[in-house]
Amino acid sequence: MAPFPSELLATLTPLAVQHDSLAIPAHRNIVALAAARFEKPHWVVTPEQAAAASAPTRGSGGARFRGAAIAVETVDPQFALTEGLIINGPFRIGARDAQGAGLLPVEHDIYVLPDADEATVAALREWAMAVARHCWGAVIQSSGNVLRPDPESLVDLRLYSPDPQPNEVVATALRPVLPQIQPFQDRDGSEALYMQLEYDGTIVIRRYRASRELPPALSTVDWREFGPHVYEVSWIPPAPEELDNPSPSALHLIARRRASQLVARAATVLREQYDGTVLDFEDFMVRPADLKARTQGKYTGLA
């Protein structure tokens, strides 16, 4: 893949040439995306405030200068992931520029990551890669290299529900989409459910009460829309070692695509039956439209 054009980065903000950046399809909810990792994310300077502050004004002095535009210093939008940790953006690029830079052919928002200590930079990069994977976006390194993590690798889903149900009830609810579902005893001694797929591995369903603090992403939704009871729907591929393979085989990808639809259908049934909010395994929210797209094998990342 060709490097991201530095001249395009320079037109956005000089910072973008010197720092790593996150590129995601436009209009995604950056507050919700930040809340998956950080506490109390908030706007410092909104895009509207930045645009207003950067707009030239008309002079009102003497007749000689009346009506002349007065230049002002450009103000960037700024978003605080948490107190004192600020990213600059969004800066919008059009669909054609995005496609030419190796991104999806849609408008993108660019957020420029800040300088920080080594541990903070590592956390920022990990978050940015997770967001890019969740949204079908990319991380643009300061060198211009474009890193596009595979969104379809996020197969497993969790429903955080207020309604706990025993496994036999869950199995009955899921049987229309997982007809051979049956109980088994997990390695920790707990009861779980599974269905062996003919060619594509195994779907496993576990229900448990969250033992740690609930994921920060849930703080962005009404408290009545989730609960502490987790319904976890996961996939074990035919060759589990392929999960860590950066270039998995064609057979793994085919199995993953088919199994992912079943995982999404199972999560949809559970959500319809027991209410709650669905997150992926990186704790990002999966909206109903995104979940529906997954049940149909569609992974646009734009729903």
Rank of each mutant, 00 (worst) to 15 (best):
G201Q: 01
A32M: 10
L270F: 06
R37Y: 07
N88A: 15
P149F: 07
G62S: 06
P90S: 06
D244I: 07
K40Q: 13
G276F: 05
V155S: 05
K40M: 11
S153P: 03
V139K: 06
Y160T: 02
T295R: 04
L85I: 05
P228E: 15
H229W: 12
P25Y: 04
R287S: 11
F65D: 06
A130V: 04
R209S: 11
G227R: 00
R96E: 13
P228T: 09
E232S: 15
D115L: 14
S211E: 14
T268H: 11
L302K: 10
Y274L: 13
V269W: 00
A217D: 05
Q185L: 12
L214W: 07
L270D: 01
A239Y: 15
Y274F: 15
E168A: 12
I181Q: 01
L193S: 00
G102W: 10
Q182V: 10
H252W: 13
L8M: 13
A95L: 09
L243A: 08
G67L: 05
E198M: 12
V112E: 01
T295F: 02
Q141W: 12
G100Q: 12
A52W: 06
H27C: 09
A35Y: 03
D283R: 09
Q99F: 15
R207D: 11
Q180E: 14
G201I: 01
P14Y: 08
Q196K: 15
Q261T: 08
Q185M: 09
P114Y: 11
H19N: 14
V177W: 01
L154H: 09
T172I: 10
Y208P: 08
A239H: 14
L33K: 00
S21Q: 04
P228R: 15
P216H: 12
H27M: 13
L22N: 00
T220I: 07
F79V: 01
H252Y: 15
P228Y: 09
N245R: 11
D156Y: 05
F281M: 15
L113I: 07
T82K: 08
Y231R: 01
N29Q: 14
A50W: 02
W223C: 09
Y208A: 09
L157K: 02
Y160W: 10
V204I: 14
H134S: 08
P41R: 00
G84M: 00
G94Y: 14
M285G: 06
E241C: 11
E126H: 14
A55P: 04
K40G: 09
V112K: 01
V146D: 01
Q49G: 09
L147Y: 10
Y194V: 06
P240H: 02
A101K: 03
D109V: 07
Q182D: 12
L124H: 04
L124P: 02
P5T: 06
S211R: 15
L103Y: 07
A267V: 03
V177K: 00
A239L: 14
L174T: 02
R265V: 04
